[in-house]
Design a protein around this nucleic acid. Structure first.
Lengths: 202, 202
DNA sequence: TATTATGTAGACCGATTGTCATATTCTGGG
DNA sequence: CCCAGAATATGACAATCGGTCTACATAATA
C-alpha cells in the first residue's frame, strides 16, 4: 500500500508540474490531486518538495526517453520516425486541451537555482534526447556533425512548439514544422550516403 | 517622479519573470529589486500582481517585436537575417550567464489560467513574431505556405533553444541550428523564385 | 504484550498578497 | 511667499497560504 500512495503522489505531481510549473504547484495541490494526507508526503519524501520534484522529473524524463527511443527504433527511415514524433506530440497536446507540456521545460524556467540535482537532471535529459535523435540520423548515414545539428533542430523545435501550441491552442503548427523538418532529414539522409552535405549558409 | 518608480517596477519585474517565472517572482522580490516600497505597487498597479505582469508582458513583447522587425528589415537576405537573430539570442544568453530566457514562455508555462488577458497577449506575441518572419520570407520570394512553415520552424527552434541552452549552459547549439536553418531558408528563397523545390543546392 | 515498521493528522511559522491610514512632494493660484 | 489640494510615497497591518516538523495511530511481528 505504501507504493500506491507514493506512486499516486508522483503521478499527480508530474501532471501538475507540466501544467503549472514548479512554483505554481503547491503541496496542497499535490495532496488534493493524489488524495493523500499531508503528513504522508514527508514520510515518503523526507527531503520535502525538492526531493519529490527531483524524483518526479527523473521519472518523467525516463518515460520520455524510453518512448522517444522506441519511436526512433521502430522506423528505419528517420524522416518518417521524426514525422511520427511530431504527430504524437500534437496528439498529446490536443488530448489534454493544450494545458500540458514538456516535463522538463517548466523546471528549467521555473526551478530554484539552489537545487543542482534538478538542473543536472534537465541538462542530461536534453542531452539524452538529442543523442537519441543524432544516433538515429547517423544510423541512416548522416555524418555525425550534421546529425547533431538536425537532432538539435528537431528537439528545439518540438520544445518550442509545445510552448507556442499551448499559447495558441492550435495543433496545425506542429504539422507544418513536421513536414518541413522531415523533408530536411530525408534530404540529409540522401545526401549523407553520397558526397558531402550542404553546410554553407550565406 | 512617479513614472520613474513605475518604470523601474516594470523593468525589474520583466527581468525577474524571465529569470524565475510568474510564481517564482514574489512581490517582495520585485520591490527589493526596484527599490520601491510596498504600497507604491498598489498605487501604480491597483490590479495587483496580475495587472503588473500584464503590463510587463505587453511591454516585453512590444520590445521583442520591434527588434525582430528591425533585424528582418535591415538585411535583404532573410537567411542572413535569420542567422543574425540566432546569434543575437546566443549573445543575450551568454551575457546573462544563461539565466534569462524569453519573456513569454515562462508566462505561458506558469501563469494562472484565470487571467485571460495574459494568455491572449502571449498568443498574439507568437502570432506577431511568426508573422514578421513569414513576411520577410515572402518578400524574398518564398511562397506563402512554405514561408509560414519556415517561420514556425525558426520561432519554435529559437524558443526551444532558449530552454535547452539554459539547461546546458551552452551556446553552441544555437550556432549549429542557425547554420542548418539559414541554409534551409536560403534554399527556399532560391527555389521560391524559380520553379520547383528540387534537390539540394550544394 | 512489547517492539518495530508504516502511515496519518494537524500544529507551527515564515512568506506572500493585498489594504490602509498617514506622510511627503508637487502644483498652480492668490 | 504661502497655501490648498492633488498626486505620490510609505511602511505597518491582516488574512491567507506555503512548506516543514513532531506527536500520534495503526498494522505487522516476535
Amino acid at each position: 500500500m505504501a507504493t500506491d500512495t507514493r506512486t499516486r503522489m508522483i503521478e499527480a505531481t508530474a501532471l501538475l508540474i507540466r501544467k503549472r510549473g514548479y512554483h505554481g504547484t503547491s503541496l496542497n495541490d499535490i495532496l488534493s490531486a493524489s488524495g493523500a494526507p499531508r503528513g504522508s508526503l514527508y514520510f515518503h519524501f523526507p527531503g520535502g518538495k525538492d526531493q519529490l520534484v527531483i524524483e518526479v522529473t527523473r521519472a518523467s524524463v525516463a518515460d520520455v526517453t524510453e518512448r522517444l527511443g522506441a519511436a526512433l527504433l521502430e522506423e528505419s527511415d528517420p524522416a518518417v520516425a521524426v514525422h511520427h514524433i511530431y504527430q504524437s506530440v500534437g496528439r498529446m497536446l490536443e488530448e489534454n486541451e493544450f494545458s500540458l507540456g514538456c516535463p522538463v521545460a517548466p523546471v528549467v524556467l521555473d526551478a530554484p537555482n539552489n537545487v543542482p540535482d534538478l538542473i543536472e537532471i534537465c541538462r542530461s535529459a536534453f542531452e539524452q534526447w538529442i543523442g537519441l535523435l543524432r544516433q538515429a540520423f547517423v544510423r541512416a548515414g548522416v555524418p555525425e556533425r550534421r546529425a547533431q545539428a538536425l537532432a538539435l533542430l528537431v528537439e528545439s523545435s518540438l520544445e518550442g512548439l509545445m510552448v507556442i501550441a499551448r499559447a495558441t491552442r492550435d495543433r496545425t503548427p506542429l504539422a507544418a514544422v513536421a513536414d518541413e523538418v522531415a523533408a530536411l532529414v530525408e534530404q540529409a539522409v540522401l545526401a549523407g550516403g553520397v558526397a558531402h552535405p550542404a553546410k554553407t549558409a550565406v
